[in-house]
Simulated assay, not measured.
Amino acid sequence: MTPTPRTAGAAPVSPSITAHPAELPSVGKPAPTPSRLVVPPVGLDLPIAAMGVAGDGQMALPPDPRTIGWYRYGAGPGDRAGSVVLGGHLDSREYGVGPLVRLRKLKRGDVVEVRTNGGPVVRYRVAEIRDIPKKKLAVDNLFDRAGPRRLQVVTCGGPYDAEGGGYRDNLVVTADALP
């Protein structure tokens, strides 16, 4: 055993003291994470991937439009407050047009489900479907962690701007949690 270095005035460390790993207190069962987005009125059933922040500061999105991302640093479907944010690509050069194109067919009052790993199915009622210019998207409202329990599903929308390199708008579906 190598002796522990001492600083002036410090008591020597006794080799007879044995360290034991601390037992951490139980914090309960982990919160359920979203696993599938199911939207029966438009025939959507997509896997959900936990995502973070991309290099450009935007929410990271799965590359394949057949998967939707959940912003894992925000609210989860089991939380008592805040917006669960799901986002995905409408289409891509590699994969073609994805199923999120069907979101435009949703109607106010339709029910959307978020299925979770190890937890309940959380249901939401669609309150609003709208195109918002990307430059005017109120991200503080979209990613709200303290407001009412709701679901925000975001994809591209509006006309495609080839010169600008993408769609002009975001299609945002806002749905309120059902009891």
Rank of each mutant, 00 (worst) to 15 (best):
P15D: 07
R36C: 09
V112S: 03
R123N: 05
Y71V: 09
D79E: 04
G76Y: 00
G98C: 08
R168H: 14
D131H: 01
G157C: 00
H20P: 12
P47V: 01
F143P: 13
D64R: 01
L86N: 03
G88I: 03
M59V: 11
P34W: 02
R123F: 06
V126G: 15
G109C: 03
L61I: 00
G98E: 05
V111P: 11
A31Y: 11
V97Y: 12
G158E: 05
G82C: 00
L61F: 01
T155R: 04
D64M: 00
A75P: 03
E128C: 08
E94L: 13
R108G: 08
G69D: 00
L137N: 04
D131R: 01
K135Y: 10
I17F: 12
V97P: 13
V13K: 06
V97K: 11
E128D: 15
P148H: 10
A50M: 02
P5D: 09
A162Y: 09
P34M: 04
G96F: 02
V121N: 00
N117I: 09
G166Y: 08
G87C: 02
P65W: 00
V172K: 01
P148K: 11
A146E: 13
A54I: 01
L106P: 09
G166L: 08
G164V: 08
M51A: 12
V101R: 12
A19P: 11
V13C: 05
L178P: 03
P12I: 05
E163S: 15
V53L: 07
S35H: 04
S16Y: 15
P34H: 05
H89Q: 00
G165S: 08
V139S: 15
P63R: 09
G165H: 06
I17P: 11
R130D: 13
D176Q: 09
A146P: 09
N170P: 13
P34L: 03
E128K: 09
F143D: 14
D79I: 01
P148E: 15
K135L: 07
C156K: 00
R108V: 10
V13A: 12
F143H: 15
D64E: 02
P40Y: 04
T7A: 10
V85I: 07
